[in-house]
């Protein structure tokens, strides 16, 4: 066998298709006869595969290093983790990254605050219901003479109350009455639906940042101009210039009518500017998006828009569909559908 270097060079030229036909033919004839050469060719092929393995391992290590760093700063935390944190159930290993991100990421802190308000609202509502139930049981028991040594207040007796207590009771009654009229009384007409809309409507915070991030990183070949136009319109929406955003999105959709994400934000801009009826067809179209998060967001806001315009039956059906899924809107959809059913 030729010396190592020459052998390697020949095999390389053979494997890389760098041999003249006559030389190749001679090499192949030799290869057929020479077992050592066959092994050498095999080894060289394996060595090249080893290079791919080396590069892929390097990629893997680099990716793992990035993932580790992102994990440390709480990048992977999601809405379930926020709920666990607020309920005091967050896994111990996630506590430090959670607090780190809470400190450094204002958008995340806002998300946590919103979730907290929502949980408190649910607790308050549930607490109010509980208190009413207890009050009813207590009243019934009192009427049965259940409590020992109880005295019925003499009829016609004026019960004197301190001014502070009186103000507190009046204020509590006013709050309960207002809340009842606005939110819970089933026979108060469209005002109730509008009240539910107000109680449940929150600006969209899940799809928009992800979409803007995606557009920021895009601009690839064919759709660079499209991405720029959409990003421009969404940035207007993000800064609260809803009318401008709606106009920019309408122009954009004339050119790209199939863009469901743009339809979602055109619908949302409509909700923000009180154009509920106009928002409905846009949200309906966005609800057919392939991306589950976009479709779920569109359906949630569509249900709210339907509610606001008095189409409670359709809203309830849509909310039930959302409640059956597993999206960030499912919990709220379940709750709102429950309230609407209770109103029927």
């Amino acid at each position: 066998m030729a010396d190592d270097y020459q052998q390697t060079e020949r095999i390389s030229r053979y494997l890389e298709g760098d041999m003249a036909p006559a030389e190749r033919q001679a090499f192949e004839a030799e290869l057929e006869q020479d077992e050592a050469l066959q092994k050498e060719v095999g080894l060289q092929k394996e060595a090249i595969l080893g290079v791919a393995c080396f590069v892929e391992e390097n990629y893997r290590h680099a990716i793992q290093a990035v993932a580790g760093r992102l994990k440390h700063e709480g990048f992977f935390l999601n809405e379930e983790n926020i709920r666990d944190y607020l309920r005091g159930n967050l896994e111990e290993s996630l506590r430090a990254p959670f607090e780190e991100r809470l400190k450094n990421d204002p958008a995340f802190a806002e998300e946590v605050r919103l979730e907290k308000d929502m949980l408190e609202g649910i607790n308050l509502y549930a607490g109010g219901e509980e208190a009413q139930k207890i009050q009813r049981v207590r009243q019934r028991l009192q009427e049965e003479g259940f409590f020992p040594g109880q005295e019925s207040p003499p009829k016609g007796k004026v019960v004197s109350l301190s001014r502070r207590r009186l103000i507190a009771i009046v204020a509590s009654l006013a709050i309960l009455l207002a809340a009842g009229l606005y939110l819970f009384l089933p026979d108060s007409g469209t005002g109730t639906y509008a009240g539910l809309y107000e109680a449940y409507y929150r600006p969209e915070t899940a799809v928009l940042p992800a979409l803007l991030d995606q557009l920021e990183a895009s601009g690839f070949a064919q759709d660079a101009e499209q991405s720029r136009q959409l990003a421009d319109a969404l940035q207007r929406y993000e800064t609260g210039a809803y009318a401008e955003a709606a106009s920019a999105l309408s122009t954009y959709l004339e050119q790209y009518p199939q863009d469901r994400e743009a339809r979602l934000f055109l619908g949302l801009a409509g909700l923000e500017t009180g154009q509920y009826r106009e928002a409905i067809p846009e949200l309906r179209a966005a609800g057919k998006a392939a991306e589950p998060q976009v479709a779920a967001a569109a359906n949630w806001y569509l249900a709210l828009a339907l509610l606001q315009t008095g189409k409670a039956e359709e809203a309830t059906a849509l909310l039930r569909q959302l409640a059956a899924g597993d999206t960030r809107w499912s919990g709220q959809a379940r709750e709102l559908a429950g309230k609407l059913s209770a109103m029927d």
Binding site: A65, D213, D326
Partner: peptide
């Protein structure tokens, strides 16, 4: 080239969508 900051940019831009798809399924 396997640059870590490029990987990080891709994570920050694209992870949420993919995570959401997997978690919704």
């Amino acid at each position: 080239r396997g640059e870590e900051r490029a990987f990080e940019q891709v994570y920050r831009s694209c992870y949420r969508q993919i995570s959401s798809m997997a978690r919704s399924n």
